[in-house]
Design a protein around this nucleic acid. Structure first.
Length: 423
RNA sequence: GGAGAGGUGGCCGAGUCGGCUGAAGGCGCUCGCCUGCUAAGCGAGUGAGUGGGGAAACCUGCUCCGAGGGUUCGAAUCCCUCCCUCUCCGCCA
């Protein structure tokens, strides 16, 4: 959510931003609702002031055992007016609130203007494509042949886009989770948290999933509870409605959670394999930072995520999302895309973003600056470190051998009971 | 799930029969004094949000005592609904 005053003073640049993001939010009514609201506010506050002072004098009269019925009668009328104005104001508040919750974040100046993913510039590339002297297979073929991924039974148990992992597959998934958490906690300074996997509406609104993206979420029947679509939601909301001290910043959290997404609007896309599931595992990185160094923190967070792929020795590239591809709440996002030889493409495996104060304002997360003075909103950041299912499939495709077996990356062997090859 | 108690400022904790309590007192924090240094002591200050005025320091209105409604001229204080915490019982991994 953007600052109301900022919106008021920068309507033109916001309109431009909406265009760059290919979003259509109608701001034409903003001005009139905002002015009307402030008008009524001034009016009702004047009346409340009158009521407050009169109440004091009524109290005084009562204490002196004098008659106050004239004032009381007058105030009865004033109170009626106040009630009426308050009702009008809260209606305008609701309208304004609905409007500003639909406005996406302002992109950072380093974000290129572009219309879609084809306009995302590549920031850097790491490693090389594996030289396979045979026709590489897609992970779904490898996984089924090895008996470690069972798509049919996943679909039987639940439905499309659910997968059953078996044997070495299940263990590899677990190995990856542990490996990633260990790296981030022991080498990169993150504190591990294990949050609830179900959150309420306030938390969803705090990080920006609601109200706009309700269709992507699994909601529990009859409750205002939702399955988490990412650990970003519960972890960022750890400090919802809190004021941190400057010396506590930055705070680094890492969390493993399953993620649940309806993937509405992706019918027919990525129907095969592990790429797009309704349930997947992810290790997330979340930071709370002071505004003056949040972009340095973003670079470090990105490097922390990249280091996992480097240790696994998998070729990847980093792209800077352009305005047309940038997420609703983000000011700036880097995607890490891994090379998938079985499909001959780069696929997103991590998304690292700085939200600046957009989420902090919604979730009311502030800090007290060192130099004192008014509290300020923190900057929130997060990134996948990494998406576990996609990492597993990247390993299958990059480490496959001609006979369909898959070599276990060295760093994972201790987590796999020493297993060197899945066959 | 049943019974009871409770939710007040960064923290702890008073708030009597509704009015002078945005909130006593303490802790913490900040500044000053004192001290060879530290501690102790002394003095002063110290909530948030949102409007208006001012170049600014600052002045000023309104709102906020778990959340939302209600009663009243007036509510932290009374009533209703919901949420959360604690204790006991029941159930349970």
């Amino acid at each position: 959510m953007l600052d109301l005053k900022f919106i008021r003073n920068n309507l033109d640049s916001i309109e431009q931003m909406l265009q760059n993001r290919n979003t259509d939010v109608d701001l034409s009514e903003f001005r009139s609702i905002d002015t009307k609201r402030r008008q009524l506010l001034t009016e009702v506050e004047g009346l409340k002031n009158k009521r407050n002072t009169c109440s004091d004098s009524i109290a005084l009269l009562k204490r002196q055992k004098e008659d106050a019925s004239a004032q009381i009668a007058e105030m009865r009328e004033v109170s009626r007016e106040i009630k009426q104005l308050d009702a009008q104001i809260s209606q305008l508040d609701a309208q304004l609130d609905a409007l500003i919750h639909m406005i996406p974040n302002m992109p950072h100046e380093s974000v290129p203007v572009g219309s879609g993913e084809e306009d995302n510039p590549v920031v850097r590339t790491w490693g090389e494509r594996p030289s396979l002297d045979f026709e590489p297979q897609a992970h779904w073929t490898l996984g089924e042949q090895l008996g470690i991924l069972d798509f049919e039974r996943g679909a039987k148990i639940t439905g499309a886009r659910f997968t059953l992992y078996r044997g070495a597959g299940a263990r590899l998934e677990r190995a990856l989770i542990n490996f990633m958490l260990d790296e981030h906690t022991t080498r990169h300074g993150y504190t591990e948290v294990l949050p609830p996997f179900i959150v309420n509406k306030t938390s969803m609104t705090g990080t920006g999933q609601l109200p706009k993206f309700a269709d992507d979420l699994f909601k529990l029947e009859g409750l205002d509870y939702y399955l988490v679509p990412t650990a970003e939601v519960p972890v960022t909301n750890i400090y919802q409605n809190e004021i941190l001290e400057a010396h506590e910043l930055p705070v680094y959290f890492t969390a493993y959670t399953p993620c649940f997404r309806k993937e509405a609007g992706s019918y027919g896309k990525d129907t095969r394999g592990l790429i797009r599931q309704h349930q997947f595992n992810k290790v997330e990185l979340v930071k709370f930072a002071a505004p003056d160094n949040s972009y340095e923190e973003l670079e470090k967070l990105l490097a922390d995520a990249e280091s996992i792929l480097q240790k696994l020795n998998i070729h990847y590239q980093v792209v800077n999302l352009c305005t047309g591809d940038l997420g609703f709440s983000a000011s700036k996002t880097y995607d890490i895309e891994v090379w998938l030889p079985g499909q001959g493409v780069f696929r997103e495996i991590s998304s690292c973003s700085n939200f600046e104060d957009f989420q902090a304002r919604r979730a009311n997360i502030r800090y007290r600056p060192k130099e004192g003075g008014k509290t300020r909103y923190v900057h929130t950041l997060n990134g996948s470190g990494l998406a576990v299912g996609r990492t597993l499939l990247a390993i299958l495709e990059n480490y496959q051998q001609e006979d369909g077996s898959v070599v276990v990356p060295e760093v994972l062997r201790p987590y796999m009971g020493g297993m060197e090859v899945i066959r």
